[in-house]
């Protein structure tokens, strides 16, 4: 039986926000679900994330945001992906109040994972986003 294709996800912190507890936990959750995580770490720009996603042929991009900057940064990331003609699903994790969820969805964000999202929800969000993008 052929091996299922490995999912490759780029994880990054965009901008100055240095809260990396969540993204490191998510990296391990995904690894332990058999996913390959390309970890870019702190202080990334939309350009550096686009560049890594191209080179790594990422199936999804996950950004962690804890500084209330998501309404600016998530649309900026979507715009950068569009400019580069990259149809890679973007997943936002971190502190996103409920009222902002439809705003981010309208901007094209594939999934939003709030504080305390359990491991299976994190993994499912990635798998579903990747599956939806493939169809």
């Amino acid at each position: 039986m052929p091996e299922e294709h490995k999912i490759r996800v780029v994880l990054a912190k965009l901008g100055l926000d240095g809260h990396d507890r969540g993204i490191k936990v998510v990296a391990r959750i995904l690894r332990d679900a058999g996913i390959e995580v390309i970890y870019l770490g702190l202080r990334q720009t939309t350009e550096s994330i686009v560049s890594a996603a191209e080179q790594e042929d990422a199936d999804a991009i996950g950004l962690s945001m804890h500084n209330a900057g998501h309404l600016v940064l998530a649309p900026a990331m979507m715009a950068a992906l569009d400019d580069a003609d990259l149809d890679i699903p973007l997943i936002i994790g971190g502190i996103v109040p409920d009222v902002d969820v439809p705003v981010l969805q309208a901007a094209g964000v594939a999934a939003i994972l709030g504080p305390g999202a359990p491991a299976d929800e994190v993994v499912a969000a990635v798998r579903n986003a990747v599956a939806a993008a493939a169809t």
Partner: peptide
């Protein structure tokens, strides 16, 4: 705010969306 904590001015491209926020 985060730009100040990181030694960045408010007009830096790094500061986008973070000026005066936290």
């Amino acid at each position: 705010d985060m730009p100040t904590l990181m030694g960045r001015d408010s007009d830096s491209s790094w500061s986008l969306g973070e000026v005066g926020r936290a």
